[in-house]
Design a protein around this nucleic acid. Sequence first.
DNA 1: GATTGACCCCGTAGCAGCTACAGGGTGCAG
DNA 2: CTGCACCCTGTAGCTGCTACGGGGTCAATC
Lengths: 134, 134
Amino acid sequence: MSERSLAIGALAKATDTNVETIRYYERIGLLPEPKRTSANYRAYGQDELVRLSFIRRARELGFTIEQIRALLDLANSRDNDCCTVDALAQAHLAEIESKLSDLRALRRELRDLIGQCQRGKIADCQILAALSPR
Amino acid sequence: MSERSLAIGALAKATDTNVETIRYYERIGLLPEPKRTSANYRAYGQDELVRLSFIRRARELGFTIEQIRALLDLANSRDNDCCTVDALAQAHLAEIESKLSDLRALRRELRDLIGQCQRGKIADCQILAALSPR
DNA sequence: GATTGACCCCGTAGCAGCTACAGGGTGCAG
DNA sequence: CTGCACCCTGTAGCTGCTACGGGGTCAATC
């Protein structure tokens, strides 16, 4: 691979991404098809490194692929104002808040369940009883 | 359908489950294959109603299918002590705790991001900048 | 008795976001 | 020149459903 380009494995290492995942992103059009070497190996440049890093970071923050697609589109229309970006982030934050409260409710129910364990026999298990219909 | 048995649609209604989901549970062996009427319709009894209610309740509490399979197996060995049930529930609780703290971290990062929006042009968008590699 | 509509059957494919093969080709070090 | 690490494509798998397409059945109404 030439001085200024990365093979898929190197790109993978640099972005802490699975090789298969990179090919997957290409297949779904999230990453552009890169140049190829004479041996048909993918040859990535700095642009792709930057783009993939962005994608991975956004994934870490829990943005979906479609949200990321939108963010990347927005990032390219540099004259627009950034309210749309803010709105996307806000919407995502709202989703997270709602997941958080679901999980908190769930935790409470589970804690209640577990609190009832008296280390007896299955036949008397309060956890199973609590799960069973009344 | 006879007096004491339910068609799949009735079972679905009674347990607030999608008909397709019931057939899916049967396919993966979570529900047993029920008797059939002469017209080859599934005919469910009380046992299946109870079992499916249990499954749905456990799903609501976020147990995976495999965890539920284990719980159902345990429930059938009524002489064992119920520490295993407790352990399963504890493990599930631990997973929830860890998801909760991931989500809280994520929320903080997103809030920080959003706090930086100055309603300017995309070219100066701090949110996009924060997502981009350094 | 024919028609309508709501129900049932089966099998398969789709969703997200990867991951993991199988069955090959390439590049380089010893 | 042999071995190994890497690369290629294409397809199937994962979880937990959901949604079809193309049929059969049942009960009521006309």
